[in-house]
């Protein structure tokens, strides 16, 4: 009889063994994700390199690095000012801790990656913002990096392609971050006045001080499908106006209809789309 009796397996947790580390199941991280677009469950693998929902075409979030990899020719991107770090200039409560946890969780130094690369052989300055770092908010470092990018592009007579994604100006740097809006706008204006091309690609979400500055200053302004783009966030609008917001309000399609963006370009078409625009503006083509 004995050999048929069941014995409960030893569970180390029951012995509160501090050295016990639960064995992670052999499932890769985020095997499945829920699509915010259609609420369907999607295998991560199925979203492909463009990270698009195979069922509804929803554009999942891309990191700045993924975006640059998608858009630039392999190995052509050279990052600038990669080691610039934010400081808690106002002594704002909790900002140091927030910066630290953002650096750890995003493995980034700040909310934007800037540099120079090639898109189907065309030279361009490129920047991409990253939601993983304090929701892409703009403080001194984001302002300075983008300003330098436009200044370098002006010196070298090169176009700029910028992927925006931001919750707005970074509250923790107070008025200093507000001033970054003016600072970047000055550099965009100088770049523009010298006849250089700037294409802004607005991605989900682009709001606040970034919308009210360089996101809306492109010669050509494109957006990804369904991206939320606005000055005030939808929650703020609902709270202040106490009105229910109309369906599709502040989405890319809405802005296209109201005349504030040039076109909506889904990810799989972006590289070629941008390359052709660069070609149409190349100085050699004159």
């Amino acid at each position: 009889m004995d050999k048929f009796s069941f014995k409960k397996t030893r569970n180390p947790l029951e012995f509160s063994d501090p050295s016990f580390q639960p064995r992670s199941p052999a499932i890769p991280e985020k095997l499945c994700i829920k699509c915010p677009g259609c609420s369907g469950i999607v295998f991560t693998e199925e979203t492909g390199p463009f990270k698009i929902c195979p069922k509804c075409g929803y554009h999942f979030r891309l990191s700045a690095k993924e975006r640059i990899d998608l858009i630039s020719d392999e190995g052509s991107f050279e990052e600038h000012d990669a080691n610039m770090l934010s400081r808690n200039i106002l002594g704002f409560p909790g900002y140091d801790a927030k910066l630290n946890s953002a650096r750890i969780s995003s493995r980034l130094k700040e909310a934007v990656i800037t540099g120079k690369g090639k898109i189907m052989g065309q030279h361009s300055y490129i920047f991409a913002m990253d939601a993983g770092f304090m929701m892409g908010s703009m403080g001194s470092v984001v302002g300075e990096k983008i300003t330098r990018l436009f200044e370098r592009a002006t010196d070298e007579k090169l176009p700029v392609i910028g992927f925006t994604l931001s919750g707005g100006a970074r509250m923790q740097e107070g008025t200093v971050s507000l001033m970054q809006m003016a600072k970047v706008s000055g550099a965009v204006k100088r770049h523009s006045d010298k006849g250089n091309l700037y294409i802004a690609v607005l991605t989900h979400p682009t709001t606040g001080g970034v919308t009210a500055s360089f996101a809306m200053e492109g010669d050509i302004i494109l957006a990804e499908p369904k991206a939320l783009i606005g000055f005030a966030g939808p929650r703020v609008i609902e709270q202040t106006t106490r009105q229910k917001l109309p369906e599709g309000f502040q989405r890319a399609e809405f802005l296209l209809n109201k005349g504030f963006i040039d076109d909506i370009v889904p990810r799989p078409r972006q590289k070629e789309y941008l390359a052709k625009l660069l070609m149409l503006h190349s100085r050699g083509a004159e």
């Binding site: 204006k189 919308t211 809306m216 000055f231 005030a232 202040t240 106006t241 917001l245």
Partner: peptide, 26 residues
């Protein structure tokens, strides 16, 4: 602050401010 209602968004509050920043700089 700038108005943050539905009408202001529809008429491009962000774009209006951005254009002022750029043009005032020059």
């Amino acid at each position: 602050g700038a108005d943050c209602g539905i009408a202001a968004e529809e008429r491009g509050q962000g774009q209006a401010i951005a254009e002022n920043l750029m043009e005032m700089m020059a």
